[in-house]
């Protein structure tokens, strides 16, 4: 503990730093807690849901929230609470998978583009073309070509999101390639892959992690929109988008059909964005200070 006493002089200036990480970055903490709850909901859906989300019950249609049906029932008498829980699964799976795939593929393509001028020229024009089409329209077009399924929805959204990651990764690589420490590493005999994986990639992790949270949020919204207009997951699968689409016709009589899935989607996306913003401040303190 010799170091601790040596640091005592700086105790005052370091008081801010010494607060635990979860208190220093409240947005990250809050985002993580909410996301954790949503994930827990998704995973524990079979145990939390008292009633089968697809079970029809014509006698109990459009019931308001009650102790028996917490969120009420829809026009086919299905339990909205159970459907909301199962809907979380679709959203969480879509968000995480799209974020992982889009970041992975985008990073790979971005690295290639950053290192080879020819590949760069060809690939960036393709990416520009993809970016020129609004992500939703692109996803709708892709869904129109394929069968409605969760897998296809994910692929369609990944295609729409990848260009953004490629741009970011390419930009980072182009900047870092010129950095003195990369030159210094070359001067000490580091090869191409050593430069790429040991010196450049670790510096790219922080911005990519932040970007991937925004992709997850945007993927969830895109999935809901696709489902809402009937171009997403099949209507037999409960998803927040499907539920809102089905509920919108009876919105005036039974607002709970739209309200609960809509609320869940908003809160989840908000949580992810909070996490992303917080992570950005945490991983790049200089940027955070500039923004203030």
């Amino acid at each position: 503990m010799a170091t601790a006493s040596a640091l005592d002089d700086d105790a005052v200036t370091h008081a801010v730093r010494r607060r635990p990480a979860w208190r220093r970055h409240p947005t990250v903490t809050a985002g993580l807690i909410i996301l954790g709850l949503v994930c827990a909901m998704a995973i524990a859906a079979p145990w939390l849901a008292s009633i089968d989300p697809t079970a029809l019950s014509t006698a109990k249609r459009l019931r308001p929230p009650s102790p028996e049906f917490w969120f009420g029932t829809d026009m086919m008498g299905r339990d909205v609470w159970s459907r909301t829980l199962y809907g979380a699964r679709v959203s969480v799976i879509t968000g995480l998978t799209v974020a992982a795939l889009a970041t992975g593929i985008g990073l790979l393509l971005g690295l290639l583009a950053g290192f080879d001028r020819t590949i760069d020229a060809v690939m960036m024009r393709i990416m520009d073309g993809l970016m020129a089409i609004p992500a939703i329209l692109l996803a709708i077009a892709l869904m129109a070509l394929t069968r409605a399924s969760l897998g296809n929805v994910i692929i369609a959204i990944v295609v729409a999101e990848v260009p953004r990651v490629v741009r970011l990764a390419r930009g980072i690589v182009l900047t870092l390639r010129e950095a003195t420490f990369v030159e210094a590493a070359t001067a000490s005999g580091t090869g191409f892959f050593g430069l790429l994986f040991r010196h450049i990639l670790p510096n790219a992790v922080a911005p990519l992690v932040v970007q991937s949270t925004y992709i997850a949020a945007s993927a969830m919204i895109t999935e809901a929109i696709l489902s809402f207009i009937g171009a997403g997951v099949p209507s037999s699968t409960p998803s927040w988008g499907n539920m809102m689409a089905e509920g919108r016709t009876v919105f005036q009589v039974a607002p709970q059909l739209v309200l609960f899935p809509g609320l869940c989607l908003s809160v989840t996306v908000l949580a992810i964005n909070m996490l992303g913003d917080g992570l950005r401040d945490m991983l790049d303190p200089r940027l955070a200070r500039r923004m203030k």
Binding site: F181, A187, S188, G189, R198, H199, P202, N203
Partner: peptide, 24 residues
């Protein structure tokens, strides 16, 4: 050339502030 760099010929740069990788 790579085998030569850093082994038989060493190099020191002008800017010590930027010639070390911040994440290593």
């Amino acid at each position: 050339l790579r085998q030569l760099r850093g082994d038989r010929i060493g190099m020191v740069f002008q800017e010590p502030m930027t010639s070390l990788n911040p994440v290593l």
